[in-house]
Nucleic acid binder design. Structure first.
Lengths: 352, 352
DNA sequence: CGCACAATTGAGAGTTATCAATTGCGGTGG
DNA sequence: CCACCGCAATTGATAACTCTCAATTGTGCG
């Protein structure tokens, strides 16, 4: 394997020199910069395999560097480690949220930094090996998918999200691939008049955020949890490593995205030409299909009327009227705020 | 390279034996079947690299075999050669339309069949080599794309399509990747009430039909030419060979499909919540963006009002009223049946 | 118990579809 | 070259549908 190049950005020149020597002794090729702006230049010139950067620096701070790196296609996939002061808890959280892969707190020993660097490289190497190996990549159903994912990302970070929390927002740069371990998530867009349309629903076993990663652009939709969720955050460099080393896995994602594409085309036709009744009926059926697990029995929908309206592409009031009609026709039952489908066949006939 | 396995299906037992011997002498491993049904069984059992089949056979004819092969995911990528009688011009055309890769007319010499077989293998081999080699795969703009494509598919078949001709229809199995060398094509879906919605527009330099190929399923939209077109037909086995041997190329298609996905999400919001005026304005702008080549000057739209209505997701009458409004407001000029955009900025402001 | 917010209902306005009738255009045959 | 046919485009009148705004009712929670 070729010698790894590490870019080290830090304004404390003593620390910079020391750390650089440590890394060089460990066999890495090191290039250095003493401020963020210079760092970016070096990164573009040397295409390092890893960037380690301090946070508080003159001219451009660590966040600025991370932000720029992530916005530059040629640099976006390079793992990024922050050096922070011990007490800056906020710094750490902010850095991780922005997509840094790891952080080291000052002061640190030689072994600490080498550990961090090596574990980063090892992790990518392991993923690559595993993906290239005979590991069965099997996405055919939720159980196999779950198994594959668990196998690949044993030690990856879980994040718990509260209800109605934004997972990622439109126009931001993607840092992670998300895997829904538990919970439900919706993707939505907002029209110029401020109305929301739900353009996708995701449940346990689904991935989210891969379109932006595959397109190598910003998110084009926002996503928000519908209930409290447990998501797996897979750093984007790991995702790219996997995709590039395992063709079968890449094909799985292609299929997912192609399938979503077709679903959207169907919805477009519905939105353009179907009556409100049909659209609402379709939304109910879609929700059942999407969120019914094995417990088919007594499936109820517990979303606000506003959420439902956003899925159907209408206003809350119109949705409510339609639901009332359905209730009077004995197609659904509404108890408190929950909706239960009584006559699924009639609903199906309606949309055809 | 491992020995290639060829499956030979033919009910004329003498011909079967003779041809089999020829192929074996040429170093291929051959398995045989004397009717279509048996042929399919053999194909599933042996996973051949090539299938050669007669057309007129008892139990199941050649078309049936081809059809089944194409519907079976494990077999769908295997090149398929027909053996036809000299005089069956119709057979040949029908076979090629169904996606056969080549045909041989009876009676044929040893060299004829060996030529056909070898050229098939050679072609795939060449594509693979070329794709893996340093050939610059560059899709960034139309000119580079055109160049890349021409380089890869020097001797591929062109097809001329007349205006309003169907290129492929929903629910059929894909046989080709299409590349638009000249002309404009639309993709559309039909609602249950029979109304058409245009879900995609394609012009020179675009690919069509790749979603179904990538998803390994049937087409989920139909496509039709908007004017006379010159399309390049790239057989699906060649497409798969390319995709699998060149990761950069695969990524290009992923980007295309991811991008289309985002476009569709935007359109969904428009269809759900925007007024007719906005939708029509957007359609006009979209058409300009999509179909304006270098000749930006005096760009006119020459589509029927019905086509335009299908793009905007409305009825012909409503579209016409909106266009009349735009005309009265001096936003567009309508001469005969052509539309020219006069005030593009006002249109842009309208949709925002 | 009452507050805050979600759900529902009502009345009326606005937008778009529908159906029917008319006009305009391009090509064709005399 | 012109009348005419067929189809596309346009216009008109009306109906249907959905949205908007305002008011009221219901529900969960502190």
């Amino acid at each position: 394997m070729a010698t790894k190049i590490i870019l080290l950005i830090e304004d404390d020149l003593d620390l910079l020199r020391e750390t650089s020597e440590t890394l060089q002794l460990a066999g890495y090729q090191v290039c250095t910069a003493s401020n963020g702006k210079e760092g970016i230049k070096m990164a573009l010139a040397h295409q390092p395999d890893l960037i380690i950067s301090g946070v508080n620096m003159p001219v451009m701070d660590g966040y600025g560097v991370l932000h720029l790196v992530q916005k530059t296609p040629e640099l976006a996939n390079i793992p990024f480690i922050f050096i922070t002061s011990q007490d800056d808890r906020d710094d750490i959280r902010r850095g991780m949220e922005m997509g840094a892969d790891d952080y080291i707190t000052k002061p640190f020993s030689d072994s600490e930094i080498l550990n961090s660097v090596e574990s980063r490289f090892k992790r990518l190497h392991r993923l690559k090996k595993q993906a290239q190996s005979s590991l069965q990549i099997d996405f055919t159903d939720k159980y196999n998918r779950e198994h594959t994912i668990k196998e690949l990302f044993k030690s990856t970070r879980h994040n718990i999200y509260k209800k109605k929390q934004i997972v990622f927002a439109e126009d931001n740069y993607p840092q992670y691939l998300f895997y829904i371990h538990k919970g439900k998530v919706k993707a939505f867009k907002t029209s110029d008049e401020g109305k929301e349309l739900t353009v996708g629903l995701y449940a346990e076993g689904d991935f989210i955020g891969y379109t932006a990663l595959l397109e190598e652009s910003t998110y084009r939709v926002s996503t928000k949890t519908l209930e409290s969720c447990d998501l797996l955050l897979i750093p984007k460099d790991e995702f790219y490593t996997l995709i590039n080393s395992n063709n079968a896995l890449a094909m799985q994602f292609i299929k997912l995205i192609a399938h979503k594409n077709n679903q959207k085309a169907d919805l477009m036709v519905q939105l353009a030409y179907s009556s409100l009744r049909k659209r609402v009926a379709n939304s109910l059926l879609f929700l059942k299909r999407k969120f019914t697990l094995d417990t088919d029995e007594r499936f109820t929908i517990h979303l606000t009327r506003e959420e439902l309206a956003n899925i159907s592409g209408t206003t809350t009031e119109s949705l409510i009227r339609t639901l009332s009609d359905f209730r009077d026709e004995k197609l659904i039952k509404i108890t408190n705020r929950e909706i239960e489908i009584l006559d699924i066949d009639s609903l199906r006939n309606m949309v055809n």
